[in-house]
């Protein structure tokens, strides 16, 4: 574990120095413990691949005190049993107008579009963390064969529900937002819905699978 002051009211806690399942587990365990305990001096927790950003009430603690207390929580988190991950399914209609970059991903990697789809939907992904926008889950790791760099110039608007790839990550855009990831399909699901419990379809620590669906199924599901 390594600490780094990030602002006068925030501390970065690094639980590893790489992206991977073991570090991810440590992030999830510490996050869940801190959430369960409802620690009064913590204002916000932002998890990521290998770290937690802890924003604190600077009237209650300083960096040294926050660090000492987090160290204690981390010791306890290590002794907790690993939480059993939920398996979440996301139906996707690949290609066509829903996946304008599918052919580019195929061409870049010397594959057919069908092979890209097969490689994308046969893996189970870790939901490493949520960031960027409400409900936006960073899922990994995408098969090397279909990894794809971001667009040089991001799109001004990516439609809500778009399923995309960037590097060895994949994600679903919950809202119509700007975005530079490569779009390969779209889900009819509402990924983030404020009147639903839980609001996000995908939570940190989930295992996520994509299931290819036809245009017909997409149509009736989006009407439902």
């Amino acid at each position: 574990m390594r600490f780094q002051a990030a602002s006068d009211q925030a501390l970065l806690v690094y639980l590893g120095e790489e992206i991977g399942a073991a570090t991810h587990q440590r992030v999830v365990r510490l996050l869940h413990l801190l959430q369960c305990e409802r620690v009064a001096w913590i204002r916000n927790i932002q998890p990521a691949y290998s770290s937690l950003l802890i924003s604190f009430d600077a009237r209650a603690v300083d960096h040294a005190e926050a660090q000492a207390r987090i160290t204690e929580y981390e010791k306890r988190a290590e002794t907790l049993p690993a939480t059993k991950a939920r398996l979440v399914e996301v139906p996707v209609c690949y290609g066509g107008e829903f996946g304008p970059d599918l052919d580019a991903v195929a061409a870049k990697n010397g594959l057919t579009a069908a092979k890209v789809i097969a490689l994308h939907c046969t893996r189970t992904y870790h939901a490493y963390f949520l960031g960027f926008a409400p409900g936006f889950a960073y899922l990994g790791d995408v098969a090397r064969e279909i990894a794809m760099p971001r667009l040089e110039t991001p799109r001004k608007e990516v439609p809500a529900g778009s399923v995309a790839i960037a590097g060895r990550q994949t994600a679903v855009y919950p809202f119509a937002t700007p975005g530079g990831w490569r779009l390969i399909g779209r889900t009819p699901l509402e990924i983030f819905k404020k009147d639903r419990e839980p609001m996000g379809w995908i939570a940190i620590g989930d295992q996520v699978r994509f299931r290819p669906i036809s245009r017909e199924e997409y149509a009736w599901r989006s009407r439902a």
Binding site: A6, Q9, A48, S51, L53, Y138
Partner: peptide
Amino acid sequence: MISEGAPLGA
């Protein structure tokens, strides 16, 4: 850099 949480005002 591995993406990480960014504080307000970063």
